[in-house]
Design a protein around this nucleic acid. Structure first.
Lengths: 339, 339
DNA sequence: AACACTTTTGCAAGCGATTGCATAAATTTG
DNA sequence: CAAATTTATGCAATCGCTTGCAAAAGTGTT
């Protein structure tokens, strides 16, 4: 493994000159620079990561924080797509990414504490945003920079984040069902403490209000089939004329679809469904699921760009909104308005 | 951020003593050790990652290599589950993980070159195994340790790996269909250059041969609906009496299922399907998909354990086989044997 | 040709840990 | 009680790189 001394020696200069030459310092003469660059290339030199970070006291790795480890979350490809976006930007900039995970909130926080104490994480990207997140509290306590993907729960103006306009997305999805003639539309969600769900709910409510339609909400995780069936039974008893569902994400939409299709009575009713995320699930479902695409890879890329920019702590925060788009498939049916 | 000097000062000893005390060196007296440990705890001290690695010339991060970036791969939660397993073991050992990705083979190899040159990766875990992988060539060239998840293509005895017994899994899946009365069973795959697919094929062939049944293979990716339909048309023209499919993974099984369900003739035939991976897809499908569970998280954990063990280069390699298990759902139907 | 600038280069001191070796303290022994 | 051991500590070098500052080389001006 070549060191800077080897490069310097081969170029016939001192290590300091070599270092400056390779960093494009203006005070190095052109011929010297060329000699150094050539030598470096010949030796296949890359600065030692640890030494460089130690010397500059500026770390170069981004900590990517996954939500607390719940089987369901890890089976959602959404996160991997965001990671892919982050990683592609980071490797363009010569940065590394490292993951923080934990099977409980405590463990996750502890892992992050260690990462901070070891002092080699430049800043963090949180792949989620939720109410009263202890991770955020920790990062603020240590005054570590972070970017969240999603809408921050608190300190919105002081936090850098990348998000979709989930309120608008909720509205768009709902309006789409309305345009197709639906009037009794239910919003299905699973966890109100996630910021993203709250926003999509708001968007739904706005769309319904604009048309003077009633809000019909259902909180249900469909964790097992029996619970799902009984919840739906109760639901339809109360709201017999619902024809469409806006589900807060594709996975939930599919779970709903599954329960509906398993019951002959419900199946024939051909409910309309729209989900969010345009995940692979929506393509593989039968019928294929209409879904609001949110471009997780893009979210990751933008978050990484902000993280790379490395602003001083007190500068203004950045917010970037990634557009969404409805991808029409076969789970939404046009109906005669009951108007 | 506390340094070892701060700890030493607070404990009233020299930095070297502090260092030794915290590393459990035998030559430090008990009272001194306690003073140091106490001081360290009070200062919330953790050794600087970069400094420590530099001094010991032994890095502590594991590079996790994802397959070349193809949308489909990143939408498969399988990988995230493996990463989760790796990360949980690594953080227990105080190691970091960092990801290597690339949108092309060249880019991936380049990223790995940089990581190696920077000299801060202890060793690598490859989340896939395929024929003539340039990444493997690179790692071998630089004499960097690595563990592969999957069966190595070459140097099986010299490579550490974690895998399922995919041959047996292929046999088991096929036998299960046979037990349910199927006789004309097709094996559906998408990319023969992946070791995992090759092994499952072998397993299928073994099971069919044992029963004197003919091999019926279909290579098809179902990248778009029209291609899928025409491929199947051709297929059924040749093999009209096929009743069951063993698909090399759940995603492919679902794509097949989708095409089958979209055609009224095919739909009524109620083909039986079995997939592999027991991914979330299999639960969300309708009907739910019978699938061979392979426990990706476990694969990741075992790979991480091997990677952590950090054996000298020329020691014997380790191979670990993680058991699989058929998870029965509703996509396999019993039929009267045509025997 | 001597002086005053500029431009380039190199010396040496860090960054925060670890570790071989010398020394100091404690203990045993004669 | 002094000498010989054993045990515990600290000094200083090192890992590979960066960077402030001083020295050297180059340029231009009288």
């Amino acid at each position: 493994m070549a060191t800077i001394k080897d490069v310097a020696q081969r170029a016939g200069v001192s290590p300091s000159t070599a270092s400056r030459a390779m960093h494009g310092s203006k005070i190095i003469s052109q011929p010297t620079r060329e000699k150094v660059v050539k030598a470096a290339r010949e030796l296949n030199y890359a600065p030692d990561f640890n030494a460089q970070n130690l010397a500059t006291k500026a770390s170069n790795t981004i900590g990517v924080v996954l939500p607390v480890d719940h089987h369901e979350i890890f089976s959602n490809p959404f996160f991997l797509e965001m990671i892919r976006g982050i990683n592609s930007i980071c490797s363009q900039h010569g940065s590394m990414t490292t993951l923080a995970t934990g099977i409980s909130s405590d463990e996750l926080v502890h892992n992050i504490d260690v990462m901070i104490a070891q002092g080699h994480i430049r800043n963090f990207i949180l792949l989620y945003s939720e109410k009263d997140d202890p991770v955020v509290a920790r990062l603020q306590h240590f005054d570590v920079q972070y970017v969240v993907i999603g809408k921050p729960y608190a300190d919105v103006n002081k936090t850098s984040y990348v998000d979709n306009d989930n309120i608008q997305a909720g509205t768009d999805a709902t309006q789409y069902l309305i345009e197709q003639g639906h009037r009794r539309i239910c919003f299905l969600y699973s966890d109100i403490s996630k910021m993203v769900q709250g926003d999509r709910i708001l968007g739904y409510q706005r769309a319904m209000m604009q048309q003077n339609l009633p809000n019909i909400m259902l909180e249900q995780r469909f964790e097992n089939h029996a619970d799902g069936v009984s919840a739906l039974k109760k639901f339809f008893a109360q709201y017999p004329d619902v024809t469409g569902f806006v589900a807060v994400d594709d996975m939930l939409a599919l779970k709903l679809q599954q329960v509906l299709h398993n019951d002959p009575d419900w199946k024939v009713k051909q409910f309309s469904l729209i989900g969010f995320n345009n995940s692979i699930f929506s393509e593989l479902a039968h019928p294929t699921l209409t879904s609001v695409a949110v471009f997780p890879q893009r979210l990751g890329e933008e978050a990484a760009k902000i993280a790379m920019a490395n602003r001083p702590t007190d500068e203004l925060s950045t917010a970037i909104i990634v557009p969404h788009q409805i991808v029409k498939r076969h789970s939404v049916h046009q109906i005669r308005s009951l108007g």
